[in-house]
């Protein structure tokens, strides 16, 4: 039952990622070039904060699996973030690629630390 709910939560998280990323893209379309995944960075930072808080909080194992592995695991993503960095590098923007990769990792790590601290 836990695994089934976790699977469904993963689908919900992925759909939420599409909606948040798409909404941020639409809202910022006039100012930020579409190639830069600002919406995705926001998704990963907020998801890392939430998982940091959930992990530090005393939640039952089932809740951790459904919300942590399912919802937040499906919500955040590494593959697109990595691809965004690679595309920047392949477009000759090496500095931007390094900044995007290290900046995303640093921001998500900081968000996880903050999440654990507030929990």
């Amino acid at each position: 039952m836990t695994v089934l709910l976790m699977t469904l939560a993963g689908g919900l998280g992925a759909a939420l990622r599409l909606v948040v990323d798409g909404s941020v893209r639409s809202a910022l379309a006039a100012w930020v070039p579409q190639r830069v995944g600002v919406g995705l960075v926001l998704v990963n930072v907020t998801g890392s904060f939430a998982l940091g808080a959930l992990t530090a909080a005393t939640a039952p194992g089932d809740v951790r699996t459904i919300v942590g592995v399912g919802l937040l695991g499906g919500y955040t993503t590494f593959s697109s973030a990595s691809l965004d960095s690679a595309r920047l590098a392949l477009a000759g923007r090496g500095g931007a690629a390094v900044l995007h990769a290290s900046g995303t990792a640093a921001a998500c790590l900081a968000a996880a630390v903050l999440g654990a601290w507030v929990a």
């Binding site: 993963g10 890392s48 998982l51 919500y75 955040t76 790590l109 968000a111």
Partner: peptide, 17 residues
């Protein structure tokens, strides 16, 4: 969908933390 859900940034960040 599949690859977005398969990979995760939150677990990566929290495991590091």
């Amino acid at each position: 969908g599949v690859l977005g859900g398969f990979t995760t940034y939150s677990t990566y960040a929290v495991d590091t933390q």
